[in-house]
């Protein structure tokens, strides 16, 4: 595989005298190709931040292979660090420094022209408040400052861990627009977030991690399609009669108080035709398409399975029905 970010078999276990041994990442794989806006999803404690920290050399991996812009990480990270902008988890800054000074010091340390500081402050909407002390900033403003620090180097690769944390709705929209504009200019973006609707709007590719392992990866639409059960919601006046007719037609039907859910119907017209031919008139027929949130919850909130100890985030690996294989749309289920 060739990608801007490649991770294979990443493993990391934390050892603590008080908390004992904790597996944070357990054989995780990730591939981000050039030009992608790649969403990185997972519940709290699933290993997202540990993965990003390991990739950026802040945490030592126990095992696995990682490359960033073709350089093996963390050994050769210094060679490409100037082309990678990153924020990891809730970034913290020295409270008594102004945003301008914070960025100026980073620019000095990284050999970036100081004139760039004003540009990125304007880019993230902090230009007018850049000379205020960071300790007076709201969480959202600190987040903007963090993004500004990542943009300072004009990165080819941008790694953003929860960039929308603390942002108000307008800020989230600005962040979305910023990422789109960066992507349009050829910047590869890896963004982790809990705001799944945002990921669905921004990202073209997605990787979902649970309990330290990849449970889904691929194009967003393909991942969603993998969970499309061809369902549709049906409302009619005579629910029992409709259910009977649909069952007789060989369809799978789940009854609810005021509607039916019919599964295995690639073409909703089948439902209206089946019912209409028998004089049952459809009042509502809505195809049920999975969104990223439902897929995410399904992949990560499954109950623990017998014999499989619950780890990290408490979720269980997702298995394709009947195959015992994890969903992987890049490789079509190679994770046994």
């Amino acid at each position: 595989m060739t990608g801007v970010i490649e991770i294979e078999g990443l493993r990391k276990t934390f050892h603590s005298v008080r908390r004992g041994r904790r597996v944070a990442v357990d054989g995780f794989d990730l591939l981000v190709e050039a030009g992608q806006v790649h969403g990185f999803l997972g519940p709290n404690g699933s290993g997202k931040t540990t993965t990003l920290r390991a990739l950026l050399g802040l945490v030592r991996a126990d095992d696995g292979r990682m490359t960033v812009l073709g350089a093996s990480a963390p050994e050769r990270l210094p060679q490409v660090a100037g082309r990678v902008g990153a924020i990891v988890e809730s970034p913290q800054f020295f409270g008594n420094f102004t945003a301008y000074r914070t960025l100026r010091l980073l620019a000095l340390a990284g050999g970036v022209p100081v004139s760039r500081v004003d540009e990125v402050l304007a880019q993230v909407g902090l230009h007018d408040r850049g000379h205020e002390r960071v300790k007076g900033y709201s969480l959202g403003m600190k987040q903007r400052l963090a993004v500004a620090s990542a943009l300072l180097k004009r990165p080819e690769l941008l790694i953003l861990d929860e960039p929308a944390n603390g942002l108000d709705p307008a800020g989230i929209r600005e962040m979305r627009d910023l990422m789109r504009s960066l992507a349009a200019n050829g910047v590869t973006v890896l963004v982790s977030s809990h705001i799944l609707a945002e990921i669905q709007l921004i990202c073209d590719h997605v990787t979902i991690i649970s309990r330290g392992r990849r449970v889904a990866a691929g194009r967003v639409d393909e991942v969603l399609a993998g969970f499309d059960r061809d369902e549709c919601l049906v409302r009619v006046d005579d629910l029992p009669r409709a259910e009977e007719l649909l069952l007789a037609a060989g369809l799978t039907v789940t009854g609810h108080a005021d509607h039916l859910v019919v599964s295995g119907v690639p073409d909703p017209a089948t439902v209206s035709r089946t019912l209409g031919e028998q004089g049952v008139w459809v009042r509502e027929l809505t195809p049920l398409r999975p969104d990223l949130e439902s897929v995410f919850l399904e992949l990560t909130n499954a109950p623990a399975q017998p014999g499989v100890p619950r780890q990290v985030d408490g979720s269980a690996p997702h298995h394709e029905p009947g195959t015992g294989r994890m969903i992987d749309l890049d490789t079509r289920g190679v994770d046994a």
Binding site: P74, L77, F94, A109
Partner: peptide
């Protein structure tokens, strides 16, 4: 001490990973 706590070291290492 303050740099380790305030994230200054991490920020710096993202720029100079040595």
């Amino acid at each position: 001490g303050a740099d380790l706590n305030s994230g200054g070291v991490v920020n710096l290492l993202l720029w100079r990973p040595r």
